[in-house]
């Protein structure tokens, strides 16, 4: 496989035989993970000293619970962004998934089958996205914005705009906590993170994602079926968003068309915080996880400190800008 220089060096997670490339990769990884990791540690220490309620097992679980939904969406978004695209339609797929799950289970369909159907619905949405982006050639921004509107509208239509409580509360099985207060959906989130991380780092498919994100044309010339890969990435992204919809419905024991509407922007923010680049070829699950945790921990810590919601929004925005600035610094130091 022959890739352009950009395509090769941009693959942050892909190993290289060249010493200089290896050095650049380590430096980049250092900035990417340790930088945001150190930043996260600073946040943890600051909140631990600022509010007595922060540093406890129950609050740690609380943070994990709170970030699970957006975390699952962000895993899919990581794939999309690393490959050089992004997916706004997740903001419609999450509520569509939540509403569909509530409707299906209320109609008597068992939770496992309902979950599979919902994931299938999500996959179908981004199959359409992928086909439009690759075959029609419409920009991902416009395409996924369009499907965002359609899926959000579908969620409202199916639910008639109201919250649909579960008739049988047992279908919210994902919210049960079988071990140490940790719910099944938190476990599912962590398991998915591990699987996708391994896939990105150690499989040909994962390396192709970095390659396509690094240089789409070079990847095509190298024999990668770029269009098929792009469609598959969108399908995975949307399937994960639909599953996140199931998770949020399980959390709330109800489906509603208003849930998850900020999923797109928050997940993109988390992925970028984690060191990914909107131009593609950079990023990884580790960074995304830390990005998600940073956003969730800041929201939690400021809530415990009783900081008004408006200030929380400002702080989150400032942190995102800081992270982007940090990314520019990284580019200077690594010569990208």
């Amino acid at each position: 496989m022959t890739l352009s220089a950009k395509g090769t060096t941009a693959a942050a997670g892909a190993p290289s035989a060249q010493p200089s490339a290896q050095r650049a990769r380590i430096l980049r990884a250092g900035f990417q993970y340790f930088g945001i990791g150190a930043f996260y540690l600073v946040i943890l220490v600051a909140f631990a000293f600022s509010t007595q309620h922060f540093f406890s097992y129950s609050n740690a679980l609380n943070i994990l619970t709170n970030v699970s939904v957006i975390g699952i969406v962000a895993l899919g978004q990581t794939l999309a962004i690393v490959s050089g695209g992004f997916d706004l339609s997740v903001s419609g797929v999450v509520p569509l998934g939540a509403v569909s799950f509530a409707l299906l289970t209320n109609a008597g369909i068992g939770a496992p089958l309902a979950i599979l159907i919902v994931i299938g619905i999500g996959a179908l949405v981004d199959l359409i996205n992928g086909l439009i982006v690759t075959q029609v050639g419409i920009n991902p921004l416009i395409t996924t914005l369009g499907t965002l509107s359609i899926t959000a509208g579908l969620a409202y239509t199916l639910s008639r705009g109201v919250t649909i409580p579960f008739v049988d509360l047992d279908v919210g099985i994902l919210a049960e906590r079988p071990f140490a207060g940790i719910s099944y959906y938190v476990m599912a989130f962590l398991a998915l993170a591990i699987v996708i991380s391994l896939m990105l780092r150690y499989t040909v498919f994962g390396r192709m994602i970095y390659a396509v994100g690094g240089n789409r044309e070079a990847s095509r010339l190298a024999g990668i079926r770029v269009d098929s890969l792009t469609i598959l990435i969108y399908v995975i992204c949307s399937a994960l968003a639909a599953f996140a919809g199931v998770v949020v419905a399980s959390q709330l024991l109800a489906g509603a068309p208003t849930v998850g509407v900020e999923a797109a922007l928050t997940s993109i923010a988390a992925v970028i915080l984690g060191g990914a680049s909107l131009t593609g070829g950079l990023g990884g699950v580790g960074g995304t996880l830390i990005g998600v945790l940073v956003l969730g921990t800041i929201a939690n810590g400021m809530a415990l400190m009783m900081v008004p919601a408006f200030y929380q929004q400002i702080a989150t925005g400032l942190i995102l800008l800081l992270a982007v600035g940090f990314g520019r610094l990284r580019a200077v130091f690594t010569g990208e």
């Binding site: 509010t51 309620h53 406890s56 129950s58 609050n59 609380n62 619970t65 709170n66 939904v69 919250t163 949020v248 959390q251 709330l252 109800a254 509603a256 208003t258 849930v259 998850g260 509407v261 929201a299 939690n300 809530a303 415990l304 009783m306 008004p308 919601a309």
Partner: peptide
């Protein structure tokens, strides 16, 4: 007082946080 924004999921999350205190 928390800001639930009038929606289900944000209200759930903000009250979960508030209960810690």
């Amino acid at each position: 007082q928390v800001d639930g924004k009038g929606v289900l999921d944000t209200s759930y999350t903000t009250v979960k946080n508030a209960l810690q205190t």
